[in-house]
Design a protein around this nucleic acid. Structure first.
Length: 723
RNA sequence: GCGCGGUUAGCUCAGUUGGUAGAGCGACUCAUUGACGUUGAGUAGGCCAGGGGUUCGAAUCCCUUAUCGCGCACCA
């Protein structure tokens, strides 16, 4: 017996060494797997953002995916788990901006090219950290296929995707209301707007003493940009005024409004009359479109008023609001001031209050009928409704449907530098974005002299949406059509992927977008099953956050307890969609389990050293029963693994090893160490090592090596799953 | 406002076609340094949130109330 067993199991001295053995074996790459493997199994790693380091959520993702991947590999499938990272556009750029600011460097001063160099350096460092952390977790990722959402192959894929969607009329450029982030100085999509419930004030007032009735608003400062007042067409109170026009001075700005009737106005709400501000409100913009109203912008990109009396003009909206209210009061126009609960849109990344502004932007049309009169929305719905894609837990399918039904066109252009630059070219010499009538060419490279590329970059989720297939594209076989390119790439055997495992918080951002993009672009579903894991919370069930100071670094836990223990604590008892309250005690408990396996092995090896297990003795009936009990458990857990119920399997294997094998079977065999006992012990130990391997790969591989004198051809990672 | 979940032992949660309430941790009692950075055996502890219904039978299915959480939302 190896003298290592004289000491307790030491994950620190074991894990890095074992990972290197696996890497050198080449078995992470499905091309190197032994035996004939007809069936494939594939997962693409949800690419972590290159914004820093991995958190417990990532650890959870890696633990779940690696466990599934190892199971499938042991089950004889040609198994690919493909790694990569996400450039994360806005998130990365804003992080680097902050860092540079601390060093006294402003991005406007150093310019686009120089700034991007800083971002790329940062992204590279983050990438390296992420890769090393993935390895620490034991992830059996095929590093030879690693991809990046912003590398050359993915850049070509993004271009082809953009081109195809543009040609199909699904991507269009239009001037309309966007979610403007005044702090980030960019537009963001509807999904990136976080609604916050806040206390606000509703003001009821008259524009002027000559105006016939009052209106109500929470944003009096925007009323300088009003061009109409909308009432319900059947509202008896206001019917007689419809069609009339009024002009007056409002806080130093001449305003002309027309009274219009529109069904969107709820006569029950407020006073039943709505001041229409087309340039600064989504709903007002739509009303304005219906009634051909002029659009008058009075707030700029910095969230400041551009018109009005002194104290209003050139001040931020909050200040201007107070000033306008003060003016109303002085003029005796203010009728009521009421505190209300309102939901305020804020930017996901910067926290700034969103300012709706009209802007020329790129959009994806989700309602336009394409094939068979179906829209992108229909495609997204259909694939899940007809069961081609299954979402776990099932209840998220309802959430998914609900989201799609409310989905509006997706704003994909961003006014930031880091990302895929929009492959649209204009002939204008000045900023091409301001002129809607010019010719547009979609091209990867400049179409010729005097052509200028659009300054904007794409929403990061545009490139992530291609991830399941863009990662499989062969750079050597580039074809100017995504579907053909994929077909010509040898790795297309891995598409559609079997499983997408990710957090439920990005079901809309990512899962839905992947279904949309992949279905349209390559005519395949991106994955068959979606497994959504929950949030990792602290012991008390609180969200981990910087301000609470309760963030746990997975690396610290690995250092203290080993990666196997951390993996188990992230898997056992945590079903899909369920949040996990992670405590150090839980991790500690599983580190004890690793040691329990270690010690049980020592006992078995000590007492079976002289035994030749290849000769199966006649078994005593109770030994036979133990083995049958195990085989029944294997049947049960194999089925559960196939159904991705690993949270149950982990617990059952743990329970069997400790409370059946160690507590009962070993104790029983100990009493009479005959050949039947010895066979039973060594057989059950080995079979359990195989079954536990996907969950606790390090300790099981280490023991396996010690049992087999570390012969390289006897790696547990490629042993067959017990039958 | 619309939608989705949860409510089971002190704590965290299982409970998959409805059939006599489960695990882990914690608590308590005893044993144990003999594979064990100890471990083992055992004990206590639950009107399965409340109410109503379907059923021979409900933690499980339906309705309803309460409560907590989450998602979505252009209510001025």
């Amino acid at each position: 017996m190896n003298e290592k067993f004289l000491k307790p199991y030491n994950p620190k001295e074991t894990e890095d060494k074992i990972y290197k053995i696996w890497e050198n074996s080449g078995f992470f790459n499905p091309d190197n797997l032994p035996g004939e493997r007809k069936e494939t199994f594939s997962i693409v790693l949800p690419p972590p953002n290159v914004t820093g380091t991995l958190h417990t959520g990532h650890a959870s993702m890696l633990a779940i995916e690696d466990t599934i991947v190892r199971f499938e590999r042991m089950s004889g499938k040609k198994t690919l788990w493909l790694p990569g990272t996400d450039h994360a556009a806005i998130a990365t750029q804003s992080k680097v901006e902050k860092i540079l600011e601390k060093e006294g460097i402003k991005k406007s001063e150093i310019g686009r090219e120089e700034f991007l160099k800083h971002v790329e350096k940062f992204a590279q460092d983050s990438h390296d950290t992420i890769v090393s952390q993935c390895k620490k977790m034991g992830s059996s990722l095929d590093w030879s296929r690693e991809a990046f959402t912003l590398d050359e192959t993915r850049h070509k894929a993004v271009f082809l995707a953009f081109k195809k969607m543009y040609e199909a009329g699904l991507i269009y450029r239009k001037h309309r209301i966007v979610n403007w982030d005044p702090k980030g100085q960019t537009t963001i999509s509807d999904d990136e707007v976080i609604r916050e419930n806040r206390k606000g004030k509703m003001y009821t007032f008259k524009y002027s003493h000559d105006f016939p009735f009052p209106i109500a608003t929470t944003r009096p400062e925007t009323k300088l940009g009003d061009t109409a007042v909308a009432v319900h067409p059947d509202d008896a109170r206001y019917k007689e005024f419809i069609g009339k026009e009024y002009s007056f001075d409002f806080a130093g700005e001449p305003v002309t409004v027309k009274i219009i009737g529109d069904n969107a106005v709820d006569p029950e709400f407020g006073v039943g009359a709505l001041g229409v501000t087309p340039a600064h409100s989504q709903i007002d913009w739509e009303i304005a479109q219906r009634h051909n109203l002029p659009v008058k912008q009075v707030i700029n990109e910095y969230g400041k008023l551009t018109v009005g009396m002194e104290g209003v003009k050139d001040t931020k909206v909050e200040v201007a609001r107070a000033k306008v209210v003060e003016w109303l009061r002085e003029q005796n126009l203010l009728i009521e001031e009421k505190e209300i609960d309102q939901s305020v849109g804020t930017a996901e990344r910067t926290g700034a209050v969103i300012e709706p502004l009209p802007k020329m932007q790129w959009w994806i049309d989700v309602n336009k009928p394409i094939k068979d009169n179906k829209s992108l929305k229909d495609l997204m719905l259909e694939k899940v409704k007809d069961g081609q894609i299954e979402i776990l837990p099932e209840r998220f399918e309802k959430t998914y449907f609900h989201w799609i039904e409310n989905l509006r066109d997706w704003n994909i252009s961003r006014q930031i530098w880091y990302g895929h630059r929009i492959p649209a070219w204009y002939q204008s010499t000045e900023d091409g974005r301001t002129n809607n009538d010019e010719e547009i060419k979609i091209s990867l490279t400049s179409p010729g002299e005097n052509w200028k590329q659009d300054e904007d970059t794409l929403d990061t989720w545009f490139s992530s949406g291609l991830w399941t297939f863009s990662t499989l594209l062969d750079p050597e076989n580039y074809v100017e059509d995504l579907k053909e390119w994929l077909k010509k790439s040898p790795d297309n055997i891995y598409h559609p992927t079997n499983l997408l495992e990710t957090g439920y918080d990005i079901i809309f951002f990512w899962v839905a977008r992947m279904i949309l993009m992949t279905t349209f672009l390559v005519d395949e579903i991106p994955f068959k099953t979606v497994y959504l894991h929950g949030l990792v919370r602290d012991k008390q069930g609180r969200k981990m956050s910087k301000s609470l100071g309760n963030i746990v670094d997975p690396l610290d836990l690995i250092n203290s307890f080993g990666a196997d223990a951390l993996r188990m604590s992230l898997i056992v008892g945590v079903g899909p969609g369920q949040d996990n309250n992670l405590s150090e005690d839980k991790v500690k408990a599983y580190s004890k389990f690793a040691n329990k396996i270690w010690n049980a092995t020592r006992f078995v090896l000590e007492n079976t050293a002289d035994f030749d297990e290849s000769k199966k003795p006649n078994l005593e009936s109770r030994h036979e029963e133990y083995i049958n009990e195990w085989k029944n458990l294997v049947k049960e857990v194999t089925k559960e693994m196939e159904e991705y119920k690993l949270y149950l399997v982990g617990e059952k294997l743990y329970h069997f090893f400790w409370h059946r094998f160690a507590d009962v079977i070993i104790e029983d065999c100990k009493k009479d160490l005959n050949d039947s006992s010895k066979y039973t012990l060594i057989y059950l130990l080995k079979e359990q090592l195989k079954a536990l391997h996907p969950f606790m790969p390090f300790v099981t591989e280490e023991i396996w090596g010690l049992i087999h004198d570390e012969k390289p051809e006897k790696l547990l990672i490629i042993e067959a799953w017990p039958a």
